[in-house]
Design a protein around this nucleic acid. Structure first.
Lengths: 242, 242
DNA sequence: CGTCGTATTGAGGAGGCTCAACTAAGGTGG
DNA sequence: CCACCTTAGTTGAGCCTCCTCAATACGACG
């Protein structure tokens, strides 16, 4: 979780949100220092994308790594069966574009109008060898992503669609506003289909789960793709009742 | 994937198996150099554990990180419902013990008699700041784990138990013998229950899936927990038919 | 040879998937 | 301004697969 003052946001980009693996990191909180931010800006190209634009495609040669400055991005793979599995939703301070042997493993697509920093992988790797703590931040970030994927696997493994959806909402909130947040209004920047593909449910099941959560009085899906959390305690209990 | 000569194994430990994210890493293949291995050995304590021994427990303070030198380890979480979700199976060259804010997120338990290198997290972090490419190896390793978790999520999301099991077997083989391996005999060091907990299936469904794969002539489950792959092509096709 | 934990097999029930129809919202062009 | 079309979302009916509970078989080990 990152505290981010509302002022001077532009001057504080790019940001990388991390959770350290140590309680008190001996080398300081793994946040980008002013110098590192400058270094990244030197390496980076700033991109502004409209919604729905493809950032890169699965299996294409991976030359770049991306940091989300603003907006939202999804990464996914289309499976032979025609199903789509969303790997992750990415927001401000998230990184994506991690490759495997020089190829991207997913396709990345902007969900909304987004602003990204694009970094050459080779140059970044090079920078890692000059600035240790920069690499340390990326290490923490990837480790954090790894834990999130584990949590998601637990969510997907559930049998009940409402429970999965509850976990998704709780995870989305903590992703957006920090793990301790009890924010009442969550912007749903993705479509129901996207949520379905993320949770490995059918569109219909996702829809039914939404109405079920509303019926039980846990949340309200409002116009303009916002979710209002009505009964936070119940929602959290349902999410935890794995 | 790592080529490992059968001779002088002891002199080559610890090993960390990685897949680079670049095709041709500018800073050499991310393998432990002799110097780095010596450095790790300096930091590390070598542990030998009997099967079933708990290495650490969920939520306990995380002081160490572990490298598997030999044997097999599982990491898992027990859920409130009594279900257990296995996060990962770890073998020679794998690392585990990545924590979150100073606490382990999973429990780790030896599956067989195992030999581990135990590294102090603080000291290791310190070493990262002295040896850049050491940290780079860990970054690649964690990135690799992240991709594996994504693949597992895809496996879990499948509806058909035989397909999930097929994916598990293919993933296990490539984890053990490298992604290109067509090894016929795969040792199953874990119990059916473990596989079930990994795939988010019931024990019974896992068992039925096993017999189904045998019936279709894809594999044979032999005595002593070995799987013989009878029809590799069919197995791979089933695994890929997501 | 008996016992315990592991693995298999069977029967019934719950839940999600598929197919299909319907509604709502947004964009386009006349 | 409105008719039209497209896309997203919801709701319903029947099917399919896995889960649960229970009983049985098997292997390891004392």
């Amino acid at each position: 979780m990152t505290k981010r003052p509302e002022s001077k946001i532009a001057e504080r980009e790019p940001t990388i949100r991390v959770t350290p693996y140590l309680e008190l990191p001996p080398h300081g909180t793994p946040l980008l220092s002013e110098r590192q931010r400058q270094a990244l800006i030197q390496l980076a190209t700033r991109l502004r994308l409209p919604g729905r634009m493809i950032v890169y495609e699965e299996d294409s040669p991976a030359k770049w790594l991306f940091i989300v400055a603003d907006g939202a991005v999804k990464t996914f793979r289309d499976l032979p069966s025609g199903r789509r599995r969303i790997a992750n939703f990415l927001f401000r301070g998230d990184i994506f574009g991690l490759a495997e042997k020089g190829k991207y493993v997913n396709t990345a697509q902007a969900l909304t109008r987004s602003s990204l920093y694009r970094l050459g992988l080779a140059e970044l790797t090079d920078a890692f060898h000059h600035d240790v703590s920069l690499q340390y931040i990326f290490l923490c970030k990837v480790t954090h992503e790894l834990r999130e994927q584990q949590r998601r696997a637990i969510a997907i493994a559930r049998r009940d669609a409402p429970g999965r959806l509850a976990m998704f909402l709780v995870m989305l909130r903590s992703h957006l506003f920090g793990p301790e947040s009890h924010q009442e209004l969550i912007p749903l920047v993705m479509s129901r289909s996207d949520i379905a593909d993320y949770l490995a449910l059918s569109r219909e099941a996702t829809s039914r789960a939404s109405t079920e959560l509303e019926r039980r009085g846990l949340v309200e899906f409002q116009l303009g793709r916002m979710v209002k959390i009505v009964d936070d305690g119940k929602l959290i209990r349902l999410a935890a009742a794995v």
